[in-house]
Nucleic acid binder design. Structure first.
Lengths: 340, 340
DNA sequence: AAACGGAATTAAATTGTTTTAATAATTTAA
DNA sequence: TTAAATTATTAAAACAATTTAATTCCGTTT
C-alpha cells in the first residue's frame, strides 16, 4: 500500500525532472547514456509501473487492439485468434477479445467500449446483419477496421478470408470423382457471405459435372458438433438416399459421423463425409476426416499484419483477399456404393 | 475526421461548463433534470464518445478486468470463460483475455500489461510454477486477484475450483462398481494442484476398495485429444492388461477412445473409459462418454462474482472454495470383461 | 576573454475527465 | 423585505504522462 511510484517519484529521488525520466525510460538519445542507465536502475528498484492511460491520453495511442468474432470457443476462430495473438504479441500490442454470438448489439457495444478505451484498431468477423453505421462509427473515430473470415457487402474494407466457394468445390469434386451422384450439403446458414459462397461452390461443382442440383439435399443447421449430430437422422431418411455429405465444417462433419455411426452404418464405406477447416480434431476423428484446410493460421496472420501495417502508416489498397484452401484426403470418404 | 468531441465541445455548444456536462452524463442528481436531458440529447447528436482513459486517470478505476488461463481454445476453460464473461458483462466490466500456455513469463507480462492499463482486478488459473512474487506484484499495486480452476500453494488467495479428488474418485468408484480391477489413469501431469488432487482421488478410491495401486498404470501426458490418442498404444500394450481407464479429461478420453477404436476393440464393451469435465462433445462422442461434470459454469460464475464483490468493497474470507462435481453415466463404460 | 556550438536537462503546456469547494440563483421562512 | 435555506452551476485543482521550446552547462575556437 506504499504510495504510487510515478515519474515524479523517480525524478525527485534522483534530483532530475520528469521530462528526463520520461525520455530516458523510452531510450531517447536526448539523455546521456549514463544518466539513462541510472534512471532505469532506479525505476526498477522502486518498482515503477508505466501508466499507459496517462501516456495514451497525451499521445492518443493506446497499444490496444480489439478482436471480435462469433465465438472464441469455436476452434475455427480459435485457430485464427491464435495466429492473430502471435502476430500482435510480436509487436507488443495488447488485444481485447470478445464474442458477439452474431448479436449486432453485442458487437456494437464492443466497438463502443473499444473507442472509449482509445483502441488503435479492430479486427472483426462481422455479425450477421451488421449495419454499415457500426463500421462507420469506428472509422469516423479514427479506428481502422479489418475484416476476417467473413466479408461484408457494401464496404470496401480490407478483408481476409478463405476462398470458400473454391474450397467447397474441391470437396465436392473429390466426392464426384469417387463416383457419388447424390450428395447432400449439411449445416450452416445462407445468411452470411461465407454461407452463400459455400453453397455456391457446391452448386458450381455439381453443375460442372452435369449433376442436377436438388434443393432438398441442402440441410441447413447450427455450425456445431451438436448440429451435425442432430442432422444425421434427417440426412439418412432423405428419400433420395444420398451416399455422401459435404459438411459446413469439421465440427458438423464429426457430429454427423457420430450420428451415422450410432445407426451402425460405416462412414467411409457406406457413406462418405467431408469436413471443412481441417481442425486438429479432424485427423484424430474416427474415421479420420477428409476435409479442406482453410488455412486459418494464414488468414489470421495476414489480417493482423494488415492492421499493423495500417497503423504504421502504410496504406495498402482495400478489398477482399482470398486465401486458397487445400484438400486433405483421409478415411471418411470412399468409392460410391449404392445404399440398401 | 471532424475534430474530437469532448466534454468541453458539448459545454461550449450549450453555454455550460464541463463540470455540469460530466455530472449530467453520469446522471448526477446535482444537475437539474431538464438540463440533464438537454445535455444527453446534445451528446448523442454530436456523437460524443466517453474517454475512459481520461476518466480513469482521474478516478483510478478503469472498468477493466483481466482473465488469464492456460488456453482459451481448450473447451474446459472455454466454458469457465463463458460464465465469467456473462457475469462481468452484466456488471459492465470490460475484460481482457489471455493465454499463458503455462509460461510463467507470458503470465507475468500479462499482469504487467494489466497494471499499466490500470486493471481493476485479475482472475487467473495460475501457470505451473507461478512464483509468489508475481502474485505480490498484482497485490502490492492494488489489483485484487482471484484464482480459478487451479490453486496455488502458499497463498491464501480466494480460489474457486472443482473438487478434483472427489470427482475422480466418483469415476473410479463407478468403474470398480462395474467389476474392474485393473484401472489405468491416462493423461495430465502431477505438476499442478489439479494433477495431484486427481491422482489422489484415483488412489484413494482404489485403496478404499482394497485394490493395490500400481504406479505403472499411471500414464501421464498432454491434456489434449491428441494426447489421449497417442496414449492408446501404450495403454493397450501394458502387461497388466487393464480393462478400464480413468482419463484426465474428456478430450483425453475421446482421443483414447478413438485410438482404441482404431485397433478394433469396442469401448464400453471390451474396455471402459471415463472422462472428466462433461464437455458438449462428451454426449455426442461414439460411444457417448461416461464422465464427471466439473460444473465449469458454476466455477466461473462464482469466481467472477467473488472479484466483483471484492471490488465493491466487501471482503469475504479468502481460501479455497471447492465445487462438488457430479457423475454422468453413459455408454463408454460397461461391466468388466477379461481381455484376451 | 568573449563568442560560439553542441550536448544535456528542464519548464511548462497539453491530453480529457472528475471532484470539491465556492458561487450564483432561486425559493422559503421569518 | 430580508435572512436563511435550498438548488443549480462552475472554477480550478487534480490525475500521470509526453513534448516542444528554452535553458544551462560544457569545452572550443576566435
Amino acid at each position: 500500500m506504499a504510495q504510487k511510484i510515478k515519474l515524479s517519484t523517480i525524478a525527485e529521488s534522483l534530483g532530475l525532472s520528469t521530462a528526463t525520466i520520461s525520455l530516458a525510460l523510452r531510450d531517447s538519445p536526448l539523455v546521456a547514456s549514463d544518466t539513462r542507465e541510472k534512471i532505469k536502475e532506479q525505476a526498477r528498484a522502486l518498482g515503477y509501473i508505466y501508466n499507459r492511460r496517462a501516456a495514451s491520453l497525451r499521445t492518443s495511442r493506446s497499444g490496444i487492439i480489439g478482436v471480435v468474432v462469433h465465438d472464441i470457443m469455436n476452434p475455427f476462430y480459435g485457430e485464427i485468434l491464435k495466429a492473430i495473438e502471435t502476430e500482435l504479441d510480436r509487436n507488443r500490442q495488447t488485444f481485447i477479445l470478445s464474442n458477439h454470438y452474431d448479436s449486432v448489439e453485442k458487437q456494437r457495444n464492443f466497438i463502443e467500449t473499444l473507442l472509449q478505451l482509445g483502441g488503435d484498431g479492430v479486427i472483426m468477423s462481422p455479425a450477421i446483419g451488421t449495419p454499415i453505421e457500426d463500421v462507420r462509427l469506428a472509422e469516423t473515430n479514427g479506428m481502422p477496421l479489418i475484416l476476417v473470415a467473413r466479408s461484408m457487402e457494401g464496404t470496401a474494407l480490407p478483408t481476409y478470408r478463405g476462398d470458400d466457394s473454391y474450397g467447397i468445390s474441391l470437396a465436392t469434386n473429390h466426392l464426384i470423382g469417387l463416383g457419388h451422384k447424390t450428395i447432400a450439403m449439411i449445416g450452416g446458414t445462407d445468411q452470411t457471405s461465407t454461407g452463400r459462397d459455400r453453397y455456391q461452390g457446391y452448386v458450381n461443382a455439381l453443375r460442372k459435372a452435369g449433376i442436377e442440383v436438388d434443393p432438398e439435399l441442402r440441410i441447413p443447421g447450427p455450425r456445431s458438433m451438436q448440429g451435425g449430430f442432430e442432422a444425421a437422422v434427417n440426412f439418412l431418411s432423405l428419400p433420395q438416399k444420398p451416399t455422401a455429405a459435404v459438411c459446413w465444417n469439421d465440427l458438423v462433419a464429426i457430429g454427423l459421423m457420430n450420428g451415422i455411426a450410432r445407426t451402425g452404418l460405416v462412414v467411409g464405406q457406406d457413406i462418405s463425409v467431408t469436413g471443412y477447416d481441417d481442425l486438429e480434431q479432424a485427423s484424430i476423428a474416427v474415421p479420420a476426416l477428409t476435409t479442406v484446410s482453410n488455412q486459418q493460421a494464414e488468414v489470421g496472420r495476414l489480417a493482423a499484419r494488415a492492421l499493423l501495417d495500417r497503423l504504421a502508416g502504410s496504406h495498402e489498397p482495400d478489398g477482399i483477399h482470398l486465401i486458397k484452401p487445400e484438400m486433405r484426403i483421409r478415411q471418411s470418404t470412399g468409392p460410391h456404393r449404392p445404399r440398401a
